[in-house]
Nucleic acid binder design. Structure first.
Lengths: 193, 193
DNA sequence: GCATCATGAATGAACAATCATTCATTTAAA
DNA sequence: TTTAAATGAATGATTGTTCATTCATGATGC
């Protein structure tokens, strides 16, 4: 038998891809640069992915799925829908603090025209949003005429957009503190109440 | 004397660039394709721009400036700050309806890592947001503890994001009607009240 | 325990395609 | 005739991808 596949190489390719996409966008993350950063041969990733597009897409799928799973866990644990939304937003901040790249990776690719969230994930997100509305309305925590888009936008898009504004220092302020986080939570929740 | 510069060629280059960036993103809008679509020689645009980046950047600058000017006009005409915000959001919808590409062009590039709004424009936007807060608080139409980011996000980013969600048919619905537009206006205004 | 073989993990030079950019040349109007 | 507008073939760098080759190691026979 031949030697075993070195899993650390794959992990390194993943990490390098993530970092380079975040830093330079999809176009700026070329195979040769990814391979160099991962200390791996240029053609190596083609043993696992049929193309650069597939590599990045599968990575995106995974990161989004992590969020979906987290969100579903919250919904199982809490009947208080405001708590669920708060936990989700704080999770986004938390990821941005600890593994900053992951949240920016999603942010970059979600707005890139080479990509789109898979239909199944989009459907999952839609269903979750509808469940949020149903539960929130039932126990009187949310407005009755909420749309899927409003929940999605204020639960995910707004916080991610805020985080990126702060990471880029768009209005001169970099980073955030506990008060900022709570302010975002309240802002998003209020808009849905 | 030699002949005069054919202005329609420049206009065609602009239009082609806009359309292709919207359709395929910055990376997908190559010089050769732009030139082909504009029915112009490949190297022609270099008579007016020193690079592809400069061409696209100046186009972005112009489109954003149009919005800033529109917004400033609204603020001169109306002391009712809610009316100003409503007009701005309706203008975004209007542009999306009539010259769909312009609003998508901004949306694509604003999230592309090859670009950023110029410092001067960013400063202008910041100042306008602060003025909105000042006026809105003075006549009791807006909350007292509003941040620049909240005004910017709900006045511009949210509507643009909504429009793109609908253009892409993200949740299955394409386009919008008058009721949708008013709902967005109300949603954004309420979040700032 | 050691040498050998067979396997497939890993490499990286080579490929064609495409990229942005240049500039000698052509063209047409002043 | 003069001038500069306009062209588009050519350039060199870079792209994603391929595949013949190399290399490390687990299995096998002694």
């Amino acid at each position: 038998m031949a030697r075993l596949i070195d899993q650390s190489k794959i992990a390194r390719i993943h990490a390098a891809t993530l970092g380079l996409v975040v830093e330079n966008g999809y176009g700026g993350a070329s195979i040769s640069v990814i391979a160099k950063k991962a200390c791996v041969a240029e053609g190596y990733l083609y043993r696992f992915y049929s193309s650069k597009q597939e590599l990045v897409t599968s990575l995106l799928y995974e990161k989004i799925n992590n969020l979906i799973v987290k969100l579903q866990e919250y919904m199982v644990l809490h009947s208080d829908i405001c708590k669920v939304i708060e936990l989700l937003i704080l999770e986004l901040f938390d990821q941005a603090e600890t593994v900053q790249d992951e949240i920016r990776f999603i942010h970059v690719l979600i707005h890139d025209y080479n990509f789109q969230i898979s239909d199944s994930q989009r459907e999952e997100i839609k269903i979750i949003c509808e469940k949020v509305i149903e539960l929130g309305v039932k126990n009187g925590q949310l407005r009755t005429n909420l749309s899927t888009e409003e929940v999605y936008t204020m639960g995910i898009v707004y916080p991610i957009e805020f985080i990126n504004l702060r990471i880029k220092g768009f209005f001169g302020t970099n980073g955030w503190n506990e008060e900022d986080k709570q302010k975002v939570v309240n802002f998003c929740l209020n808009s849905l109440k």
